[in-house]
């Protein structure tokens, strides 16, 4: 399952709520791309930062230097880590029809696609609530979705992200995050 590259600069947009780890997941995918030799640009949305409020993050990557410096309006890849936002059609605005969306949801991807009336090539769902409860004993939404995103897009190797997680969170927290990452990778259901 590889995404079709439509432009030389690939754009990713993350949606979630303050405190769910949008900024971290966005940074980690950016750093993984950097580790694999890509040119990257990864930045949070510059709106007010409040726990619980909607938060966005953006990453661009390319084999060539990236010159554009605006927000991302027409992403190739969309990740939604909040299960309620995942059912809000407005977060999908601008997503390229040939792109990939990966969202945190317990729903069947076909049903969700229909419910949203979504015109996108691939919609993947990861039940991050169930995975994180089982692995971590608490809700962690960003890591399992990140795993699903890697599987559906193939933009980085899973091992690169595993290393970054272990560096960032040495010890048990890192190991459990790697477990959640892998579960997301394996269990993502796409349509």
């Amino acid at each position: 399952m590889r995404m079709v590259k439509t432009s030389r600069i690939v754009e990713i947009r993350w949606h979630g709520r303050g405190g769910q780890g949008v900024v971290l997941a966005n940074q980690l995918i950016g750093m993984a791309l950097f580790e694999e030799g890509k040119n990257i640009q990864t930045f949070p949305d510059f709106g007010p930062e409040r726990t619980g409020g909607p938060v966005r993050g953006y990453t661009r990557f390319s084999e060539d230097p990236i010159d554009i410096h605006s927000s991302v309006y027409e992403p190739d890849i969309l990740a939604v880590i909040d299960p309620y936002l995942a059912e809000d059609p407005s977060v999908y605005v601008g997503l390229k029809p040939e792109g990939v969306a990966v969202v945190n949801s317990a729903k069947n991807p076909g049903d969700l696609k229909k419910k949203l009336g979504l015109n996108v090539k691939t919609l993947g769902v990861v039940d991050a609530a169930r995975i994180s409860k089982e692995v971590f004993g608490a809700y962690v939404f960003n890591t399992p979705v990140l795993g699903g995103l890697v599987r559906l897009t193939g933009i980085v190797r899973l091992e690169t992200l595993e290393k970054l997680f272990l560096n960032r969170f040495p010890g048990r927290v890192g190991e459990l995050n790697v477990k959640m990452l892998k579960r997301g990778y394996e269990e993502v259901a796409a349509q």
Binding site: F34, I40, Q41, T42, F43
Partner: peptide
């Protein structure tokens, strides 16, 4: 350098 646009963006 531009606040947020450059100051807060990670680039290589």
């Amino acid at each position: 350098y531009d606040g947020f646009i450059v100051s807060h963006a990670i680039t290589n």
